[in-house]
Amino acid sequence: MRLLHPILRGALAACLALCCQPPALAQQTLRLSTTTSTENSGLLAYLLPQFEADSGLRVQVIAVGSGKALELAKNGDVDVALVHARAAEDKFVADGHGVERRDVMYNDFVVVGPAADPSGARGRDVLAAFRRIAAGPARFVSRGDNSGTEQMEQSYWRLAGARPPAARYVAAGQGMGEVLNMAAELQAYTLADRATFSTYKARTGLEILVEGDARMFNPYGIIAVNPARHPGVNIQGARRLSEWLTSAAGRRGIAAFRPAGQQLFFPSTR
């Protein structure tokens, strides 16, 4: 080393330091695919800095619909998924793509629309509301993106035994925030998670018309990608995030997230 030019010595030292990093330092980034509701509501911006400070990890967030989030996890493009599509989550684990699923939190879905309620959907029975929307004059805007919200919406149409004709059914292929804006422009109805709707309510002028039906329960789960399928995933980081979100600290953080004084997510206690 003494015979090398000082600049070369510095470059060699830096190279050796990088090459000799312990494995823990090579996994400082954790890739998280998640539903748009956790991003659009501001929850992740509130929670993740607390986790990053506690863990030393940096979380890279990819916010898409739950279907796409699980597809990214299936392909090994992320390390962990935080989603709200329970049937799809259970199949994801049963098919061997994910491990160690945990309940994280819950809130509920709401049917929203114009205050005038042209289809007479207002009430507490979501299936009755969907039948009225199917028969009424106004349009319905669907996520159309295989998200957890769209999967729940499709289950309501099946159970209701009715759906709007094509001329009054708009499949947006967009996230929840964009769909709410579109419903406002079209004076249409849509199904939304309460957290995202609360964030967008002031800018859309839409109102909650149906809430409180037990069938509108909306649980969120976190699933680590199976390292046996994708050996390169950061399974240690995925476990740390799962454990933190379901720990006392994580539950406190979820409960404390109250924009405008309203609690939007409720931590699971299981």
Rank of each mutant, 00 (worst) to 15 (best):
L12E: 09
V83F: 02
V141E: 13
T199F: 10
F257D: 11
E100M: 10
V78F: 02
N75G: 13
V110I: 09
G173E: 09
V179T: 15
A195S: 14
V170N: 10
A134D: 12
L180N: 03
G161P: 11
T38G: 11
A116E: 15
A73C: 02
A249V: 09
R215I: 07
A73Q: 00
C19P: 00
E100C: 09
S119H: 06
A135K: 06
P219D: 03
E71G: 11
I222D: 00
A171R: 13
G98L: 01
S55A: 00
P114A: 04
R239M: 01
E207H: 13
K91R: 15
V80R: 00
P231G: 11
V110T: 08
T38D: 12
R9W: 06
A166E: 13
F257N: 09
A87Q: 13
V170P: 10
R2F: 06
W244F: 02
A87E: 15
R158G: 07
D79E: 02
G212F: 03
T190Q: 06
A188E: 10
F92L: 02
D77I: 08
E211I: 10
L25M: 08
A134K: 03
N226T: 03
S142T: 09
Q21W: 05
Q27W: 06
R163L: 08
A24K: 07
A238D: 01
E89C: 08
T204Y: 06
A249Y: 04
S37I: 14
R215Q: 11
Q28K: 08
M152G: 05
P259L: 03
L12M: 03
P164M: 06
A228W: 01
F140P: 15
R139Y: 09
L4E: 12
E89G: 07
F265W: 07
A11V: 15
A192N: 11
T196C: 05
P22T: 15
F109S: 07
A224E: 01
A260I: 08
G136L: 03
G250S: 07
L48Y: 02
T38A: 14
A115E: 14
A260C: 07
D54E: 13
A192F: 00
G250C: 07
G144I: 08
C19F: 06
D77G: 07
Y169A: 12
A138C: 03
G253K: 04
F130G: 10
Q28C: 07
A115W: 05
A85G: 02
D117H: 05
L12R: 03
S55D: 07
G42M: 03
L47P: 00
L264V: 14
S247M: 02
V210R: 03
A135Q: 13
P227W: 00
E178V: 14
Y169R: 14
R163D: 07
